[in-house]
Design a protein around this nucleic acid. Structure first.
Lengths: 188, 188
DNA sequence: ACCTGAACACCGTTCAAGT
DNA sequence: ACCTGAACACCGTTCAAGT
């Protein structure tokens, strides 16, 4: 039934353009006009595909969440290994999208992408032996600490520390979280 | 030498008005026009007192940092006590200024206020027995974890968890950090 | 159905001018 | 020295109109 002319852009194309702009020139550069220009379209054309600019930003956050690791069939690894994998994936996303990343801490963890990322961590925790009653809290603590670190790094809070120092800090954080997991995984 | 007419506003008054606006109606409401209106002045009058809007935002962040606890002569308390004091102070500031708080993770920790807050933590760590060579890293880990948690809370990431759950999560985080401090404070 | 032109209210910022 | 009026380039968003 759908008739009229063929679409030149869609929601995905809009988010692609906006994310590229944010990565290259920062969040302030993500303007309706600039995004539209990348797509060879007028700013008004965007409104058919995204409700308003706030939705566009939400869409960018969702894009980052989709980059985070979902459940992999990784062997029944040790906690430290699982954590290192997760942690580096989060940092890699933060480095790819430093302008958007800090927004992750400002949205409730209830979007599809957030649930997916959360479940991946929860599943890893269960696989590693954390009892069901402890999994949720454990996940919140780990995600918050790792996100907080990565957001700090992406936001530039460690700007004047050498990379090696930041890497060592992160390694120490992961050790600390591994000790948390081990405590929780050990039957009282 | 200074002549001309008396000033009706100053930098401090501008920051007061902007912070009140941010607290009451969010960061988007902090507009040059809105801040000026609170002060019964035109928007252009603000530019003599703050360079540009970005500086105004930096000034708000500095205000929050100034609220954080500086060195107190608290007795040679245990690590857990020191951490609880610090942690609750940070969360209280986050709750007072939820719109501005997340910006804390997006500025290098090199402003006067940031240095003051950092030194307070470092001093507490030394007081509690952490050797000088370990203090800096320990402070970064603690500050990042606490700031990340508080920013998540202020930003609304835990919006749909009951307050009691969030409080328990925070208590668990402090325990974890206390174990870090204890490890560092114990001579190898 | 999808995009555009015209229009609107607002935004940050400058600069010369008033007091 | 401090504030304002006028002006500018830009911003998000609407709506009716074109195809």
């Amino acid at each position: 039934m759908a008739m009229g002319r063929p679409a030149r852009i869609d929601r995905d194309a809009v988010l692609d353009a906006a994310l590229a702009l944010a990565d290259a020139r920062g969040l302030d550069a993500v303007t309706m006009a600039a995004v539209a220009a990348q797509l060879d379209v007028t700013p008004m054309a965007l409104y058919r595909h995204i409700g308003r600019k706030a939705d566009l930003l939400d869409g960018l956050v969702e894009r980052l969440l989709d980059e985070l690791p979902s459940t992999t069939a990784a062997g029944r690894g040790d906690p430290a290994g699982e954590l290192a994998r997760l942690g580096e994936a989060v940092r890699a996303t933060a480095r790819r999208h430093p302008a958007v990343f800090p927004l992750l801490l400002q949205r409730p963890a209830t979007t599809p992408g957030a649930l997916r990322a959360r479940d991946a961590v929860c599943e890893a925790l269960r696989r590693v032996g954390v009892p069901d009653t402890r999994v949720a809290r454990c996940e919140r603590l780990i995600s918050t600490a790792v996100l907080g670190f990565a957001a700090s790094e992406a936001g530039g809070r460690f700007r004047n520390h050498p990379r090696a120092v930041v890497d060592d800090d992160f390694a120490r954080l992961l050790e600390l979280l591994a000790s948390l997991v081990e405590t929780e995984a050990t039957p009282a």
